[in-house]
């Protein structure tokens, strides 16, 4: 076997298999990729929300890309509480300053980072949110404090278009 020289047939086999593999890949990829978000889904990228009617201590929930977004207007006490937490106490250390640029407004995805349920407002051991699905407790900054969720609730990209309007996405 080891003495055998590469002949025309070996070359043809290798070339055929190689072309076949590339061809199979070229067919399989479109079949897989068609399942990814399509152009119309991607087009629904941003939403504008009027928050003028939200009073301090209240949360509204809006839908963005099919997901709930919590917009909470926090009270002075809540802000103070959120900012007093030490980073060492957190499972996923993030300062409240980083999470809420404008301390009065907390804007975050209302999606539990465990398996995606919508946590309940003003519930749980940390006066923030509580996810009933498998028992994750979040604080008033939406940071995970107790339970199976691995990370804090996500902050989407958003900006204040004017004093009363938030643009998400």
């Amino acid at each position: 076997m080891s003495e055998k020289k590469t002949n025309r047939r070996d070359f043809l086999f290798t070339a055929t298999y190689a072309v076949g593999a590339v061809g199979a890949g070229a067919v399989i990829w479109p079949m897989i990729d068609q399942m990814n978000p399509d152009a119309s889904v991607k087009a629904l990228a941003s939403t504008e929300v009027d928050v003028s009617s939200v009073n301090p201590g209240k949360t509204i929930t809006v839908l963005w890309r099919g997901k709930p977004v919590f917009i909470r207007r926090r009270t002075e006490d809540e802000i103070a509480e959120a900012r007093s937490v030490k980073l060492e106490e957190l499972k996923h250390p993030e300062t409240d300053e980083d999470r809420a640029k404008n301390p009065e407004w907390l804007v975050m995805l209302g999606v539990c980072t465990h398996l995606g349920c919508v946590p309940l407002d003003q519930k749980g051991d940390y006066n923030g949110w509580f996810c009933p699905c498998h028992g994750s407790h979040y604080d008033i900054s939406g940071r995970i404090r107790k339970g199976p969720a691995p990370t804090n609730m996500e902050i989407p990209e958003y900006e204040f278009v004017d004093a009363n309007t938030i643009k998400i996405g």
Binding site: P37, R65, G66, K67
Partner: peptide
């Protein structure tokens, strides 16, 4: 995301 074909 691939399973969902979207963001939810």
């Amino acid at each position: 995301t691939w399973l969902w074909g979207g963001y939810s």
